[in-house]
Design a protein around this nucleic acid. Structure first.
Lengths: 226, 226
DNA sequence: ATGCGTAGGATTGTATACAATAATACACGT
DNA sequence: ACGTGTATTATTGTATACAATCCTACGCAT
């Protein structure tokens, strides 16, 4: 019955962990926009903690690339440029393909079952237009794929990227056309994994990301180039 | 004449930055082996600083995956397993291929010149058997490739992995056979980039990593599987 | 008006003090 | 002898005090 002892970087039960998670969320959700200076004292007061946990959270956020700390000067929110998003989607298209390939050999029965349930539920919520649930299920499908790859390294990497483009993705999935299509693609990937067809799994996962990428561009969420 | 204002995470002129770099190095070089507990006070005394910068460095090291912090308990060195190394080489083989492909369109003249100089020098030092220089030049060749990709995201990612497998790589390149072969492969990648042949560049960079990977296994530096 | 130097304040960097938590050892009862 | 509870100690978590640095504004000379 253990709950969640795995999230090493952001244990929820320390002040630092809470500051870290909160700031991360606020930056990804756009509360703090690009270039904004984060002051240790101000953040601390807002969250009711001293500078110490804030500073430690800052160091982590910098390593995640969400803020840039200039020594003796300050911490500034680093925006995600359109180019960053494009790059990440290209990287993800390749790495998710690899994850799907590896998942063929490493997925557990539990993971397979959850994936099937996920696809089934997503179909339902898409019909009903439940955007929040669709978003969560999509998140979970991809995380499951990463976990099923059996590679801590790959899993960690893809989860990072996944989080990083959160802002954009929230908009994308709400688009009427992409939702159902995305589900079908998930289902196809799942089928390939079940059939132990590594080539198909990789190809489908790869295409899935490319399609998501194209969708973003078609809907004007990001520019196709600089 | 500005020197190095880019290494955001590890500015050398703060105590925290020095602690971070030092611990990182010590872990990668094997001074602190897997499972060892790092105590804040002990590390602080060894480096002549208080707990504060040590703690901040710890948070960063955790995010890099080099240590694991268990709340209220301690910080433990996380070893690189053979599987991690294998996974990273597979990932790198794909991502370096992508970097080489992108470099074809984005490499600057300065980068191209440095790469040519790098290959030329490496040939010399290989003949002389200067292992330390060979190691540094190999490092630099790959970093150049990452920078030439024109993608901050990809560059950052590959530099991370590159650092991560430092320990192993040091041994690999000293092996008599791999050194010269590695040079030839670098040269071939460089030629493909100069000739604006993206397909060749990607394929050659991909193969370069696969060869390095095979070499490690053949020399018994890592197990081929668990 | 403009440029430069300097003083003041604000902010980060570091050290230290205190609080909370976890590991250990030992005493006690059975 | 064994298990249990508790006191002790070591270590991490957080807050605060102090030092170093940077930015701004102001005054002064030109």
């Amino acid at each position: 019955m253990e709950e969640d002892v795995k999230e090493g970087a952001s244990d929820k039960y320390s002040l630092r962990g809470r500051v870290f998670s909160r700031l991360r969320e606020d930056i990804l959700n756009g509360k703090y926009e690009e270039g904004v200076e984060l002051r240790e004292i101000a953040i601390g007061e807002e969250l009711g903690v001293s500078r110490t946990p804030v500073r430690e959270a800052f160091r982590q956020l910098e390593l995640e690339g969400l803020i840039k700390i200039i020594p003796n000067k300050g911490a500034y929110v680093v925006g995600i440029s359109d180019k960053d998003v494009r790059d990440i989607y290209i990287l993800r298209s390749r790495l998710e393909g690899l994850a799907a390939r590896w998942a063929v050999d490493h997925i557990t029965n539990e993971q397979l079952e959850e994936m099937e349930e996920n696809v089934y539920l997503a179909k339902f919520h898409t019909q009903k237009g439940h955007n929040e649930q669709i978003f969560e299920l999509d998140n979970r499908f991809h995380e499951l794929l990463y976990e099923a790859s059996g590679s801590k390294i790959l899993e960690h990497q893809l989860k990072d990227y996944h989080q990083y483009v959160l802002r954009i993705r929230k908009k994308t999935l709400s688009s009427k056309a992409r939702g159902p299509q995305s589900n079908l693609e998930h289902e196809a990937i799942l089928e390939a994994i079940k059939n132990k067809n590594a080539d198909d799994a990789e190809r489908l996962a790869h295409e899935h990301m490319i399609n998501a990428y194209k969708n973003m561009i078609d809907n004007g969420l990001i520019k196709p180039e600089d």
